[in-house]
Design a protein around this nucleic acid. Structure first.
Lengths: 169, 169
DNA sequence: CTGATTGCAAACACTTTGCAGCAGA
DNA sequence: TCTGCTGCAAAGTGTTTGCAATCAG
């Protein structure tokens, strides 16, 4: 089944399987504080504001959009801090980075939510997010076959949506 | 099942489903020539050399590696031409672009071969390529549910391989 | 011949990083 | 107080693009 292999130039950072010792229903903010404390990192106002803005997202977002959201809420946060915090949020198992194109990274919240996979219309650019138990089961099966311990996955299907089909006629 | 949607900032280019009117067993070089001709593009020595180098790859590669391979074969091709040609090869349905991390793009040959999905070890950076009929069937099923016409897909599972587990102990 | 192609270098866009001043714990 | 944090601007990096010379058809 496996056919060949190589080494990646850049190992992508992957969010934790689940916040390590997270209790059910624990506020995500508390999860983050605990994570930061465990790493001798500090819970700053900037990090609190970013986490807040992140948790308001109910679908894919990028760093730019996050900074804009914060600006709209009256908070001024530098891009650098946004990127740095997104990294911590990933390490804390709160957000996941998604690679949909070669231009930039996207993020989605995973803590306390189901992760998504994506249908991307190449005619309209529209992204449909869906969550599938079958995908999760297949991922387990594939990993079992290869002795792999899964942490995260990404599935994107590129194609043409019903609207895209109309548009291109 | 679908939960929310948004529009992508950059619509990724996706290789054609299959070389449009490709005949079985037709040499890939002929497919490319036919594609170029159809687009009023020219078959240049650079494009021939790049296609040749691409077809020698049996697993994931990146643009840099491609240029290095060509250099090793004694051919001098600029990065710009390599990128431009990879785009044409994608449009011709010969290669597919893969997004594994936020640093760069990877490519794999798809013409006349099975496409792959990837298991990526976050401990070692090793990439295991595999081909799964179950993944292809699931993709069809998901597209049917959403009225989507699939062109391409990408599945990456990030986790820890057996060797990675040993290493981190 | 004529429009497409090439290589070069500059431009681009997203992301990361060095640094000086600031501030949680 | 002692680290870690922030914003800024500069650096970094893969990829794209403008342009003049060149070449395929």
């Amino acid at each position: 089944m496996a056919e060949s292999s190589r080494i990646l130039n850049h190992i992508p950072r992957v969010h934790a399987t689940a916040a390590p010792e997270s209790r059910p229903y624990e506020p995500i903010c508390a999860v983050f504080r605990r994570y930061l404390h465990g790493q001798s990192l500090k819970f700053t106002p900037e990090r609190a504001m970013i986490l807040d803005a992140v948790l308001r997202k109910d679908s894919l977002f990028d760093a730019e959009r996050l900074v804009d959201d914060l600006k709209a809420l009256g908070h001024r946060v530098s891009r650098a801090t946004a990127y740095r915090t997104l990294t911590h949020l990933q390490d804390a198992g709160i957000v996941k980075q998604v690679f949909l194109d070669n231009k930039q990274s996207y993020y989605e919240v995973v803590a306390g939510r189901q992760t998504h996979d994506y249908l991307i219309c190449v005619a309209t650019g529209k992204v449909i997010e869906f969550s599938s138990e079958k995908v999760r089961r297949l991922r387990e099966e594939i990993c079992r076959e290869h002795g792999f311990e899964p942490l995260s996955h990404q599935l994107q299907i590129y194609g043409v949506s019903p609207e895209g089909r109309k548009k291109s006629e």
